[in-house]
Amino acid sequence: MDARTPADLEAALADLAAPVKLLFFTRTFGCDTCGSARRIVDSIASLSDRVTVEEFNLVLDKDEVRDYGIRRAPAIAVVGEADTGIRFYGAPDGHELVSLIDAIALVASRDSGLSGESRARLAEVEQPIDIQVFVTPT
């Protein structure tokens, strides 16, 4: 965790400029952390009326799994006006909770927060880039 308190995280969700959907992908069998991940997602949504949750099943909801490129469960797709390509795999606790809330705030603001130079370089990209960042919760 960084230095932010639960109150800070709640404040980050209090004034979202636009609605954000959390698409939660679960699996009925063989998913030890799907239950805790769903509880975390629900608790985030309870802090802001602009955050909503939709649940899909990794096995049954083939269209959504394909459309959002989901490979595993639990997974969360952070979606604003359109899909953002931001995903969280695994239960978002500890530091990942902070990252998820930051992602929600960024998506609501529709501003990546990157420097002008970074934006210019990314604007040149015309091929798919898939970034996976491996993290631990603490």
Binding site: T84, F88, Y89, A91, D111, V125, I129, I131, V135
Partner: peptide, 23 residues
């Protein structure tokens, strides 16, 4: 970066939950 480009997807992967990917 995923927000800045429609071609970029970015995933945070909880390492402890996905030992196959870790390997």
């Amino acid at each position: 970066m995923a927000l800045a480009s429609p071609h970029v997807t970015a995933a945070a992967v909880a390492a402890v939950e996905y030992p196959d990917l870790v390997r």
